[in-house]
Each structure stands twice: as structure tokens, then as C-alpha cells.
């Protein structure tokens, strides 16, 4: 017993010292701890959407994921719990469908979606995470993720880029120092992008290349192939409304070439406006709100993290002024 306790003490001292030295090494090179998004983090928030009582759930893709400031929502809408379920690069209808089928969900959904979001290929984009939540996420995974959040918040070495294996691969390939991400999350999954360092031109370049491939116009989706998803969403919206919740379909701001492409691809009059006329949901289009329409977008569709409070305030102002949200959010 004494031998084991002595060995344990030696192991703790040695391991603690070694890990502290590694942590100091990376911090000295300018790395800071960040929380990394993962299916478990999404599932943890998805569970909160059901258990929080009155929640305001933000659905969408990266434009919402990196745009909403949680503290501002809390301050402006004290009656609701903000929950972030948007996903980078994936449209949100699958999650909306899931919330509609959840008898415990009675909250408000702000669903950031555009014409392409209702197209058939977009319908199941978030379904893998929904399936993960229902079939694989468990109390032990939840506990694991809560502990991991704490670890990632405080330790640079919690990130997989600093693992022994990644370090060995970098050394083998002469790759240099680990990647310095310009995106990070808080423990409740509200994301941030720092456009002082992030590639402002990358998105625009990709869009231009995509346009070039298609002769200057992205291929139109026939209205008849687009409309069934809109009709399907009616039932999901009503299911949430019947339980006392609500849904706001929200087209977030874009600028420059991105705005031109979206209008060219899914002209507002032919798609969005017809959806607005038929849906039982409330709707908001950023082009109708000067403060949102003219908001600075470094890459024509995303918000720099320093601008999140201002953007969130502008969005909440628009929702409240148009009666799309009750004062206080309740």
C-alpha cells in the first residue's frame, strides 16, 4: 500500500510537471485555450432546448452560429434561455423538424434560412447531429462534454492539434506550428470569428469560382421542386405553435456579390415572398431592416466577433418592433 501511494505521488508530480511544461511551451508561442465544437456540444444544447422551459433557439448555418451574442440576448430577453443550434455549413430544416416532434419543446425558434435552405438537398443536412442526439448521446456523454468544456477552457493542450499523434505527424511532414484558429466557441456553443486574422477573401473567391463554373449564374431550382419543403415546414411550425412556442423564419443579411447571387439564384419575389404568404410562421428579411441590411459583413455574409453585440441588438430590435417577439421574450 505504501509503495503504491509513493508511486502515485511520484506519478502525480512527474506528470503534472511535464504537462505544465508543455502547456507553458505552447502559451509562450501565443496559443490560448479555446472550446472546439463537436456533436456532443451540439447535443448538450439540443437537450437544453427541451429542458429549459422557455427557450429562444437559434437555428441556421454559420451566419447565425457566429453572429449571436448570448449576453446581449440574456440582457434584452430575460424571460428566455438562449440556445444555439445553428451548424457551420448546413441548413437547419432537419433540426426544425426535430424540435417540432419534441413534445417537451415549447420555445421560440429564430430560424435563419434563405431560398437555398428550402431546396430538397438542404432538407437533411443537420440530420446526422439530430440522429446522434437521439441515438448515441447519453448522460455519460453529457458529463464527458461538460468536463471537456472546462478542460478546453483552461488548457491549450486540450485541443487535438497539440496531441502527441498530431505533433508526431507535423514533425514527420515538416508542417511547422499547429494551426491558429480564427473561430472559437463558448461553452454554450455561441461562436466567434476574428476577421482581423480570418480570410476575408476566401468565401468571395469560392463564390466567384462557383459562379464561373456555372457560366455566371448558379443553376436555378425549379419552384415545383422547392415548394414541397416549404409546405412540409407548415406542419412543423404549427406543431410548435400548438404547444405555445413560435417560429420566425429569418433571412440574414448579405452584401456585395453574395447578395447579388442570392437574388439571382432564388429571386425574392418568386421564392421568399411566396413562402411568406403561405407559412404560418412569422418572417423577417434583413433587407427590410436598414440596421441589418447595412450591417458591416467582412466577407459579405458573416459578422466579426466584435460586432456581435451590435448585430444581436439590431436583430432583437427588429423582432420586437415588428411584434415577432413578445417584450422580454416570454
Amino acid at each position: 500500500m505504501r509503495r503504491a501511494l509513493t508511486a502515485l505521488a511520484i506519478a502525480l508530480v512527474l506528470a503534472g510537471s511535464a504537462l505544465y511544461a508543455v502547456e507553458r511551451h505552447w502559451r509562450a508561442r501565443g496559443y490560448t485555450p479555446i472550446i472546439v465544437d463537436a456533436p456532443d456540444l451540439w447535443a448538450l444544447q439540443r437537450a437544453k432546448a427541451s429542458s429549459a422551459g422557455r427557450a429562444i433557439v437559434f437555428l441556421g448555418a454559420s451566419r447565425t452560429l457566429y453572429a449571436i451574442d448570448r449576453a446581449t440576448v440574456r440582457a434584452r430577453l430575460p424571460g428566455v434561455e438562449p440556445v444555439m443550434l445553428a451548424m457551420d455549413g448546413r441548413y437547419p430544416l432537419a433540426t426544425l423538424r426535430d424540435l417540432a416532434g419534441d413534445a417537451d419543446f415549447r420555445g421560440i425558434v429564430v430560424c435563419d434560412i434563405d431560398g437555398a435552405g428550402f431546396a430538397a438537398p438542404s432538407l437533411d443536412m443537420q440530420q446526422p447531429e439530430v440522429d446522434y442526439y437521439h441515438h448515441e448521446f447519453s448522460p455519460s456523454r453529457a458529463l464527458h462534454r461538460i468536463l471537456l468544456n472546462h478542460w478546453q477552457r483552461h488548457a491549450v493542450i486540450a485541443r487535438s492539434d497539440f496531441s502527441l499523434l498530431r505533433s508526431a505527424v507535423r514533425r514527420w511532414n515538416n508542417e511547422g506550428e499547429p494551426f491558429r484558429p480564427q473561430q472559437w466557441f463558448d461553452r454554450r456553443r455561441f461562436g466567434n470569428i476574428d476577421y482581423e486574422f480570418a480570410d476575408r477573401e476566401g468565401q468571395k473567391r469560392a463564390l466567384r469560382e462557383n459562379l464561373d463554373r456555372h457560366g455566371g449564374h448558379l443553376p436555378r431550382v425549379a419552384f415545383d421542386a422547392w415548394w414541397p419543403q416549404v409546405e412540409a415546414s407548415h406542419a412543423w411550425v404549427r406543431a410548435i405553435q400548438v404547444r405555445g412556442g413560435d417560429v420566425v423564419f429569418y433571412a440574414s443579411p448579405t452584401s456585395g456579390l453574395r447578395r447579388w447571387v442570392e437574388e439571382d439564384w432564388f429571386p425574392r419575389k418568386e421564392y421568399w415572398d411566396r413562402m411568406v404568404a403561405a407559412t404560418p410562421a412569422k418572417t423577417l428579411h434583413a433587407l427590410d431592416v436598414p440596421a441589418l441590411r447595412d450591417f458591416p459583413l467582412p466577407d459579405e455574409s458573416h459578422i466579426d466577433y466584435r460586432q456581435k453585440p451590435a448585430y444581436t441588438n439590431a436583430l432583437i430590435d427588429a423582432l420586437l418592433e415588428r411584434g415577432l417577439l413578445a417584450p422580454g421574450g416570454g
Binding site: 509503495r3 511520484i10 506519478a11 502525480l12 506528470a15 511535464a18 493542450i157 497539440f162 496531441s163 502527441l164
Partner: peptide, 21 residues
């Protein structure tokens, strides 16, 4: 002995902590 056992455990602990993924 306790020292070599402690060193083995420390190596394993460091390897585990430095293997997130």
C-alpha cells in the same frame, strides 16, 4: 519499486492527457 512504478504511471498519464481526439 515505487520510483519506477511512478515513472511508468506518469508516462501513461501524460500520454493519455496528450491524446485528445
Amino acid at each position: 519499486n515505487a520510483l519506477s512504478l511512478g515513472v511508468i504511471w506518469a508516462i501513461l498519464a501524460v500520454a493519455i492527457v496528450l491524446s485528445p481526439g
